[in-house]
Structures are given as structure tokens and as C-alpha cells.
Nucleic acid binder design. Structure first.
Length: 284
DNA sequence: CGATTGGAGCCAGTTACCTCA
DNA sequence: TGTGAGGTAACTGGCTCCAAT
């Protein structure tokens, strides 16, 4: 499982932010599980400034409505190897009955096969009497606090799981491997979404900063032009104080770039601001 | 040795259910 | 009590990678 998801993002957004924010990523250890770096898909770096995702742990309101209406599942039982389990929550208790069939089978295969296993896997539920109409309406499992906590804990260690880890985790949680897999997929998606929001905020700030800077430079340019018109045509300047922009060939700042009241032609030093879009003439 | 095929895993997007204000 | 919004489990389709043929 888990492989190409090294998730070093290929997106420009993350590229930029990766440099600018130098966010630490916990991604690095994913490769310890499975590892297949993919050049193609761009995944976010799963940086988790602080995964504030609640994952449904909304207090005690969680009914133990473990309706495990199993989605199409094969029912093929796979042996569970807990030897590699990254976490030892052997005392984990779950409202689920142990009927789950830890199917580790391929998802798509699970979808195709299925059906008959559904009834077998339906575990206790307060809703067990609500859906006897034979419809295939899926019921939604709400993970218990313990289950969510363990999944979160596991996710912190590895954002992806290899088959053994998945099986072991599923066994501990009394869930099906498919459920664990889905949870991790959704969790990764939420993490990425959150990171994207953070990135978006950062870019907004960058934009604002650049806008301000641009405004300031425009104003300064106007002042310089006005000054130029009001001055004699030729005004000798100390050569050392002038520089020429190689790109637009305009006069630039002085030696140290400092703005001096004595030297109206000097340009303020460039702000110490990383501008990913900068080009040689950007400051001109 | 290269092409084909099928399994496995992941992701983005979506759907459906549940909870809560 | 009804309802809309938000959260999230689960599904779908598509993609890549890899091993077997």
C-alpha cells in the first residue's frame, strides 16, 4: 500500500511554499513503509502544522451506532499479522462485534464482489431494524473515540500503511482493513485540504505585501520623476552612488542603497522579502 | 527484451449519512 | 419539530507502478 504517495508536492503552490515556509514534513518517514515515489501525482506534503481535524470526536455525542453495513466486501478473510503493528493497543475495546471480516482484498474487487457478505457483516446496530427493506442504502459508521484516537496516533507515525500494518490496525480496532484504508485516505485528503488553506493564506499575505511594495515603488518613482523635472537638466552625481539596472537600464540606488535626504535619486533598499516571482527587473 | 495484462494502492471528486445549531 | 450546514465514512473512476506472462 502506500506508495507513490511520498507526497512531496509537485504543485507550484507547494513548491513555493515549501521554500518560503520551510515547513517540516512528517512525510519523510512514509517511505519507510512502502515506497514508491511517484513523479506524477502531486500530493501535498502533508505538513501538519497542527492537524486540527477532529475526525468526528465531537464529545460524547458519539452514539455507539456502529452500523457496519459493510460496503461491498469480499468477506475473504486474511490472516492478520500484528507483528509489525506500529502501535500496541491490545487493550483496545470496541463496540463492534468481532464479526468483521477483515477483508484486505482489493478495493475494487471488494466493490464488485460483495453483496452477500453484507448481511453477514452487519454488526450490531441500533439501526439494524431500520433497513430490512433490502435496499443497499449504506449506513454510516461512526468511529468511537478510541478508534479515532488510535487511528490518529497511527497516522502521526505513518500517513500511509502497508498491508500488514493495515491489517494489524484493523484487527486492533475491530474494523475491516478496508475501513482503515478509507480512513487513511480521507485523513490524508483532509490534511492536504488544510495545508492548502494554509498555503492559500500565505499566498494572500504575499500578494498583499507585494502590492504594498509595488505601490510604494510607484509612488517613489513618481516623486523621482517630479524631482527630475524640477531640477536642472544636468546635475552631476557622484558616480559611485549610481548603479544601473542591467535589465531596464534605469538608474538604481546608491552604493549601499540607502535612501538619503541628500540624495533624492537613491532608491530604498530592497526589502528582505522573498519574492518567488521576482525577476531582474522586478524592482524597477 | 519489450509489450501486455492484471493486481494493488493512491488520489480527487462525489455521495450519503449523521449530528447539531 | 423541521431544516440547512458541516463533518466524515464510503464509493467511484482514473492513474501509476509492478510483477507475471
Amino acid at each position: 500500500m502506500g506508495l507513490h504517495q511520498d507526497s512531496t508536492s509537485n504543485s507550484g503552490l507547494h513548491l513555493i511554499l515549501g521554500l518560503a515556509l520551510s515547513t517540516s514534513t512528517q512525510e519523510d518517514n512514509h517511505h519507510t513503509n512502502t515506497l514508491r515515489p511517484t513523479p506524477t501525482k502531486s500530493h501535498s506534503s502533508f505538513t501538519e502544522p497542527e492537524p486540527s481535524l477532529t475526525l468526528g470526536l465531537s464529545g460524547e455525542s458519539y452514539r455507539q451506532q456502529q452500523v457496519v453495513k459493510v460496503p461491498k466486501n469480499t468477506g475473504q478473510n486474511n490472516k492478520v499479522s500484528s507483528s509489525e503493528d506500529p502501535l500496541d493497543f491490545s487493550t483496545q475495546t470496541s463496540p463492534h462485534s468481532a464479526v468483521s471480516s477483515f477483508s484486505s482484498g482489493r478495493v475494487k474487487r471488494e466493490r464488485d464482489e460483495d453483496a452477500e457478505a453484507t448481511e453477514l457483516e452487519r454488526v450490531s446496530s441500533r439501526n439494524s431494524d431500520e433497513e430490512e427493506d433490502g435496499t443497499t442504502a449504506r449506513k454510516k459508521l461512526r468511529l468511537t473515540k478510541e478508534q479515532s484516537a488510535l487511528l490518529e496516533e497511527s497516522f502521526k507515525q505513518h500517513s500511509t500503511l502497508n498491508p500488514k500494518q493495515k491489517q494489524a490496525l484493523a484487527k486492533q480496532l475491530n474494523l475491516r482493513a478496508r475501513q482503515v484504508e478509507v480512513w487513511f485516505q480521507n485523513r490524508r485528503a483532509r490534511t492536504k485540504l488544510k495545508q492548502t488553506e494554509v498555503d492559500c493564506e500565505f499566498l494572500k499575505k504575499c500578494c498583499e505585501t507585494l502590492t504594498d511594495e509595488n505601490r510604494r515603488l510607484q509612488k517613489e518613482l513618481q516623486e523621482l520623476r517630479a524631482l527630475k523635472l524640477s531640477q536642472p537638466l544636468y546635475m552631476p552625481m557622484p558616480a559611485a552612488t549610481l548603479t544601473m539596472c542591467p535589465s531596464c537600464e534605469r538608474l538604481g540606488g546608491g552604493v549601499n542603497g540607502a535612501v538619503s535626504p541628500k540624495n533624492p535619486f537613491s532608491i530604498a533598499p530592497k526589502p528582505h522579502f522573498y519574492n518567488p516571482f521576482a525577476n531582474p527587473s522586478a524592482a524597477c
